[in-house]
């Protein structure tokens, strides 16, 4: 890392946060490049946070049109202005995000991320995907993993009052402060595919029930060829049936995946804005930690449920299971 100094302008703008993470971290942030795909409410919150924090660049992917549904939890685009001059959702978001911090380059990439060649990803320090299918999550995650360069991979999704973040930092080394000592630590992360393949029975007791419920819905959407969140209470019976099959297949006790929770998740498929703010905040902090190498990164799932108010970290990996 070279020792360029921050400019006077940067020092003045970032004063309060430099007091939190230091000049070095700020310098690393300003040299980082972030890719996001899927301009959902959680991602919009996340983008705001890292543009304010002062990353080097941010690239947005989402060709979908701007419509009422798309901006329900989006403060970058005026509600009611559905047209936006024929711009895609990503383009409309780009224009608003640019204003938050003139020192960050915000740009749009057109196309479907899952069709991009592997070397496209080399430009980025971190990749965040939202609102995509189980297969796409796995695919993008694997593309990132195959590169020589370490690329941090995240997924973030909000279903009504519940949310989930997944983190894959591959093999990650960072410094940890403990009682005034600084020690170097290393963490091994599983890929998304590896993590969700860990038999449920082998997981530690008291893993958040949201983890299981969200896997059932994800699988349900895959089987039914739906997009993420394209479900309703009408699907309850089929979803419960699928849940039973999955649990039986793994000899896993069904009570760990309460019907009431699945019912709640199916009842409303919109993003709840306060939950988006919370997920976007936690994810922003995680990406800042990963880039700056400062602070304990979360491994490897985070769940929030507005109903009980808990924000919980779960380690879903073979290492942490009875396998």
């Amino acid at each position: 890392m070279d020792s360029e100094e921050l400019t006077e302008q940067e020092t003045a703008l970032y004063d309060r946060q430099i007091r939190v993470w230091g000049v070095d971290a700020q310098r690393r942030l300003s040299k980082s490049h972030i890719l996001v795909s899927g301009m959902k409410g959680t991602v919009v919150e996340f983008c705001k946070n890292i543009v304010l924090a002062g990353v080097g660049s941010l690239t947005l992917i989402d060709d979908s049109p701007v419509n009422e549904e798309a901006v329900i939890a989006n403060f970058l685009i005026p509600l009611g202005e559905n047209d936006c001059g024929g711009k895609s959702l990503a383009e409309a978001c780009r224009d608003a995000l640019k204003e938050f911090n003139p020192m960050v380059r915000v740009s749009v990439e057109k196309g479907d991320l899952s069709t991009f060649e592997g070397d496209f990803f080399d430009k980025f320090s971190a990749v965040v995907v939202s609102g995509c299918s189980l297969a796409t999550k796995k695919l993008i995650n694997e593309k990132c993993r195959k590169r020589l360069k370490q690329i941090a991979f995240y997924t973030v999704d909000c279903r009504d009052s519940c949310g989930e973040i997944f983190v894959d930092l591959q093999s990650y080394t960072y410094t940890q402060k403990k009682l005034d000592e600084t020690i170097e630590r290393q963490l091994q992360y599983p890929s998304f595919e590896e993590a969700v393949s860990v038999p449920w029975k082998a997981l530690p007791r008291k893993v958040s029930k949201l983890y299981f419920a969200l896997r059932v819905l994800e699988k349900f959407e895959e089987v039914e060829e739906r997009k993420l969140g394209e479900v309703s209470i009408e699907d309850l019976q089929s979803a419960l049936k699928l849940k039973k099959e999955i649990c039986d297949g793994q000899s896993f006790n069904e009570v760990n995946v309460p019907d009431s929770l699945l019912e709640r998740l199916l009842q409303c498929n919109k993003e709840h804005p306060p939950v988006c703010a919370i997920l976007g905040g936690i994810l922003g902090q995680e990406v800042i930690k990963a880039i700056s190498g400062k602070g304990d990164p979360l491994k490897n799932f985070f769940f929030f449920d507005a109903v009980d108010g808990k924000g919980v970290i779960e380690d879903i990996s073979a290492q942490n299971s009875g396998v």
Binding site: W21, E45, P273, A277, G281, I282, Q285, G309
Partner: peptide, 19 residues
């Protein structure tokens, strides 16, 4: 007496206030 401040924590806290 500058208290350290970052956007992410404020966003999370604001979400919790609304809840």
């Amino acid at each position: 007496n500058i208290v350290h401040a970052v956007a992410t924590t404020n966003a999370i806290i604001a979400g919790l206030i609304v809840i």
